[in-house]
Design a protein around this nucleic acid. Structure first.
Length: 551
RNA sequence: GCGCCUGUAGCUCAGUUGGAUAGAGCAACGGACUUCUAAUCCGUAGGUCAGAGGUUCGAAUCCUCUCAGGCGUGCCA
């Protein structure tokens, strides 16, 4: 709808230039927006204000000229007004609004999708937690966010791949192996001192115990280095399986799992260092190799290969991101915990070093989650191993509530996650508010079926109460919301929209009886509700939240 | 010190990329079920958009400075 109005405005501007009533010939950046007040129309444009300087005319005068061209061509607009300093306010005819409903009914599950992505390929990499421990609640937010971004991008017409990057090469894997081996020895009765920098969680003991059941004391007989390497590999596998399971239970499935180690095995790390060196972007200093990130605005250059010959994590990341683009992705999205934000300029430098636009890499930072129980903070400390895992949260509050909560806030802002609130089944809980709207509609349809009423062949012209019209307008905005959410990588717009839509529905429901004596009106209202349920469902699906038919 | 993020109603947060009189939920107060689900709705009240300058027809939004909170600032990952 918004786009149709834009087209009409631009066409009438062209006609004005053609007939000489306007002369600057400029096509300004104009805004078509939904005004804050209903008095200001369904849509408003600032075009007259934007043209004022070039036309050397008063904005209202320009608006007047444009409106003469805009009006009268057909019955698209009920009326057009000029207001304030020169805004043009558009009131779209009720018929046009009502036509939007048949689009929803026709498109069904596809309603909300668009083609603005033009089939461009996007990789969304998210979670990517080290396989050294189970996913905690912070990863949960990253998982929900990355998954929703991926779904929303796909709905907007992008070709999306979800990827998990496995950090299975760094020295944290040695630490994991050492941690497991120490617990293994401990369980076999040896006196060991367990260092602070080893992983403290109970899951390490579980892995060690498992090793004993399967292999007995065999690892004590081999050289410690070998034993630790085995423990590292087995531990990593077990933990990764757990991560995969936790994600699946959370409704998140990655298309590809990319191992950091393979970058070394295939020589891609060396290859990209050589290539960057040839470009003069990597140089040697004080025995180490440095990437010239300062060329691209970073504070200082960054080490790629240490003096002892060991590569840094950054080296893998150079190879990894090079690989991503070589796979043909137009845009690469990395979803990171906000504590890694210092890393952004570095990766942007890499992308530019690869000869690409820095915007081809979009880094979404997800702020940390504070866990609360009835308003009181829940203590968390990864160091002592007393963290709250994603699994615990999902087991306690359920998948729907946790996903919705993770997505409710802009990912940039810190999130308070209240376990009791998420479980509560009342007005305080926005998840139920939205789901209830869907269930309520389904329930109406159940009684409609019993009474032999249906939305088939209805006369939409019977719809016209204020509640009906605002509901219709709200429904028609859904594709714009999805598209905007995709282009800005801001999934939180969808839950906000759904809460508003549910609100419009509940208002409508309380003022307008659906199933009544007037069969024609009943049918039209059923049609409206059918569309409402469809949009609620489509929106919830993008978030990975179910749309229950009964609550 | 430097960098990034945040600062909007008592609380939790939106604010459509610079638009008109700044919005929602919760909490508070007052109402609405003999009815298709009251897990709902309607109404009232609540604001120096952290503060000060600047840019322009127009600023919560852009620029500068100040204050407050969080996070970074490693030849760790």
């Amino acid at each position: 709808m918004k786009n149709e109005i834009r087209v009409r405005v631009m066409q009438s501007l062209e006609r004005c230039y053609a007939n000489g009533s306007l002369s600057s010939g400029r096509t300004p950046e104009i805004v078509i927006e939904v005004p804050n007040h209903a008095d200001h129309g369904d849509y408003a444009s600032n075009i007259a204000l934007a043209l004022a300087r070039d036309e050397k005319k008063a904005p209202r005068q320009i608006a007047d000229i444009l409106v003469k061209e805009l009006a009268g061509t057909d019955d698209f607009f009920e009326r057009i007004e000029i207001a304030g300093p020169g805004f043009i306010n558009f009131f779209v005819s009720k018929d046009r609004w009502r036509e939007g409903l048949s689009v929803i009914a026709a498109e069904g599950d596809d309603y909300g999708k668009s083609t603005i992505g033009e089939g461009k390929r996007v990789q969304v990499e998210f979670v990517s937690a080290n396989p050294t421990g189970p996913l905690h609640i912070g990863h949960g937010r990253g998982a929900a966010t990355g998954d929703a971004i991926a779904s929303i991008l796909a709905a907007a017409g992008f070709g999306v791949v979800r990827e998990y990057y496995i950090n299975d090469a760094g020295n944290q894997m040695d630490t994991l192996g050492r941690s497991v081996f120490l617990r293994y020895r401990e369980l076999l009765g040896q006196a060991v001192e367990f260092p602070d920098n080893c992983y403290q969680g109970d899951y390490i003991r579980d892995i060690a115990r498992d090793l004993i059941t399967k292999h007995g004391a065999k690892y004590l007989e081999m050289p410690e280095e070998d034993a630790i390497r085995h423990c590292s590999r087995v531990g990593g596998d077990v933990i990764l399986r757990g991560i995969r399971q936790d994600l699946a239970d959370f409704g998140v499935v990655h298309d590809t799992w990319f191992s950091e180690q393979t970058l070394f095995d295939s020589g891609k790390v060396d290859e990209s260092i050589t290539s960057m060196r040839e470009k003069g972007l990597i140089y040697e200093n004080e025995g180490a190799l440095w990437f010239r990130t300062t060329d691209f605005g970073d504070d200082k250059d960054r080490v790629v290969v240490r003096g002892n010959g060991v590569t840094t994590y950054f080296a893998s990341d150079i190879a990894y991101h090079r690989e991503k683009f070589e796979q043909g992705f137009d845009t690469v999205v990395d979803v990171w915990g906000a504590d890694h934000h210092g890393y952004v300029p570095r990766l942007k430098s890499v992308v530019q070093g690869l000869g690409r636009n820095p915007d081809d890499l979009k880094i979404v930072l997800v702020q940390l989650v504070s866990l609360l129980r009835d308003g009181a903070p829940v203590a968390m400390s990864t160091r002592s191993g007393e963290f709250v895992t994603l699994k615990e949260v999902v087991d306690e509050v359920g998948r729907d509530a946790s996903r919705f909560f993770f997505l409710m806030r802009r990912s940039d802002s810190q999130l308070d996650f209240d376990l009791e609130l998420a479980k509560r089944q009342n007005a305080e809980n926005p998840v139920y508010y939205v789901q209830y709207a869907h269930a309520r509609i389904c329930s109406i349809f159940e009684s409609a079926r019993e009474k032999g009423l249906s939305p088939e062949g209805s006369t939409l012209a019977r719809l016209g109460t204020p509640e009906e019209m605002s509901l219709i307008k709200m429904l028609s905005a859904f594709p714009d919301v999805v598209a905007g959410s995709a282009l800005s990588f801001e999934p939180h717009r969808v839950p906000y929209y759904l809460q508003e839509l549910a609100g419009q529905f509940h208002s409508f429901y309380n003022k307008n009886r659906v199933l009544g004596e007037d069969v024609e009106l009943t049918s039209a209202r059923l049609y409206l509700l059918k569309c409402t349920a469809q949009v609620l469902k489509n929106g919830l699906l993008l978030l990975g939240v179910s749309a229950p038919e009964r609550m």
